[in-house]
Amino acid sequence: MTVIRTTGARFGMVPMVVPAVLAVLAVGCGTQRAGDEAGAAGPSRAGVTPSAAVTPSAPVDFRCPGESPKPTPTRTPSTSGPATPPTDHYAENHGFMVPFPLHGQERCEGLAAIARIKGALEPLRERGDFVPESTRDALTGLGYPASKVRTYQNGSTEVGFLIDTYPLCVEGGMNRVSTQADAFGGYPDHSACDRPSGGH
């Protein structure tokens, strides 16, 4: 015949465990009433709503001096894209090549730089001067250091430029039709304004 023995320690733990479990259960009782939704908006014990505790703050943009107000875009549901994300990871693997947009005061500084640059290059475009040296002279004439300005020929009637004053970068070009410029805040994992190459 087999005898199963129990020690006094095991029976001694029951009186300690049962009150602890009951205390934990009692804390949760009565916090939700009929009609309440789980996780409904309302102040938490710390005075912060659950959504505010999880949602990161979005960059703040405001109208910059000289900028005209833009109409608010109307959002409509889009059904043109696939319901599931693509499986080739292209966007994930090439994310390092997507420049950072500028926000807040930096965006205003970028818009001001674009206006100055277009103003300096437009006379060259109007007279058909698409020589990189002329473009460089016009940009350094605005006060940009020559070591931070790169210009290059892009066909016989187009010249491109990059102003690397990281973290404020300005890139663009001009041709017979227009002068273009875009300001951005550099690239991920790259402390310069030139587009990184490579990947994984």
Rank of each mutant, 00 (worst) to 15 (best):
V3R: 14
I4G: 02
R5T: 11
R5C: 02
T6G: 12
T6N: 13
A9E: 12
M13A: 08
V14F: 09
V14W: 15
V14Q: 11
V17E: 03
A20I: 06
V21L: 13
V21Q: 09
A23T: 13
V24C: 11
A26F: 08
A26H: 13
V27G: 09
G28T: 08
G28I: 15
G28N: 13
C29S: 09
C29P: 01
G30S: 04
G30K: 06
R33D: 08
R33A: 10
A34H: 11
A34V: 06
G35T: 03
D36C: 09
D36E: 14
A38N: 15
A38W: 11
G39A: 15
A40F: 12
A40W: 00
G42R: 11
S44K: 07
R45M: 15
A46T: 04
P50F: 08
P50T: 09
S51F: 10
A53E: 13
A53K: 08
A53Q: 05
P56G: 05
S57K: 15
S57G: 07
A58W: 14
F62M: 07
R63Y: 09
R63A: 15
P65N: 15
G66Y: 04
E67F: 01
E67S: 05
S68D: 14
P69T: 04
K70C: 00
P71S: 12
P73M: 02
R75V: 14
P77R: 05
S78M: 08
S78F: 04
P82L: 07
A83F: 08
T84M: 08
T84Y: 05
T84H: 14
P85N: 15
P85G: 12
D88T: 08
Y90V: 15
A91P: 01
A91F: 15
N93L: 14
H94Q: 14
G95M: 09
M97R: 11
M97Q: 10
F100Q: 02
P101K: 10
P101V: 03
H103R: 13
H103G: 07
R107Y: 05
R107V: 00
E109A: 13
G110P: 00
L111I: 02
A113M: 07
I114Q: 11
A115R: 03
I117C: 07
I117A: 03
K118P: 00
G119E: 07
A120K: 08
A120S: 12
R125T: 01
G128E: 03
V131P: 00
E133G: 07
E133W: 14
S134M: 12
D137G: 12
A138Q: 07
L139M: 02
T140G: 07
L142K: 05
G143C: 06
Y144K: 10
S147Q: 08
V149M: 02
V149I: 04
Y152N: 04
N154W: 05
N154K: 04
E158N: 06
V159P: 04
L162I: 04
I163S: 00
T165V: 03
Y166S: 05
L168Q: 12
L168Y: 00
C169E: 00
V170R: 00
V170C: 03
E171F: 00
G173H: 11
V177H: 10
V177T: 15
S178K: 06
Q180D: 13
D182E: 15
A183I: 01
F184K: 03
F184L: 03
G186Y: 07
D189M: 10
H190P: 01
A192K: 11
C193G: 12
C193T: 01
C193L: 07
S197D: 09
S197R: 10
G198I: 02
G198F: 08
G199R: 06
H200Y: 06
